[in-house]
């Protein structure tokens, strides 16, 4: 994906997309795992009740284990290069450039607005449309 191709049905655009998508999903997964560890550690330091602490501590341990699993998987697949900064830099630049190209695409040229079908807030069904 060196430059923009305006024909989205061109099969050339599908080249390596599954691999590219997998690295993106794995990165999202890793970020969520990381965030989970941090959130739980923070919550644990703010909690005094023994049973709540037990639950949080247990979940923190599970979160750390999951983070390790994802990191090891990404290392094994060479999706992530913590030791080779140059390689990681190239990977990051590639994904940054691809993301910018996707951002510039006019993927949904027609009006896809569903206003009129979703003109009510979800709570309206419970309150008969009146805000309380």
């Amino acid at each position: 994906m060196k430059h923009m191709n305006h024909d989205y049905l061109d099969p050339i655009n599908s080249l390596h997309v599954p691999e590219l998508a997998d690295t993106t999903f794995a990165m999202d997964f890793l970020i969520r795992a990381k965030e989970g560890v941090r959130n739980l550690a923070f919550a644990l330091t703010e909690t005094a009740s023994p049973d709540a602490r037990a639950v949080l501590r247990n979940q923190l341990r599970q979160a750390i284990a999951m983070h390790q699993e994802i990191t090891e998987l990404m290392l094994r697949k060479k999706w992530f290069h913590p030791y080779e900064l140059q390689e990681q830099y190239q990977l990051d630049m590639l994904s940054a450039n691809n993301t910018v190209l996707i951002g510039q695409m006019n993927l949904f040229p027609d009006d896809t607005s569903r206003i009129g079908m979703f003109d009510r807030t979800p709570d309206d069904a419970n309150h008969g449309g009146a805000l309380t």
């Binding site: 599954p18 691999e19 998508a21 997998d22 999903f25 794995a26 997964f29 699993e69 994802i70 998987l73 697949k77």
Partner: peptide
């Protein structure tokens, strides 16, 4: 949407 079997399983 994931195609890698190991990532899918995780």
């Amino acid at each position: 949407l994931v195609s890698d079997p190991e990532l899918k399983q995780l």
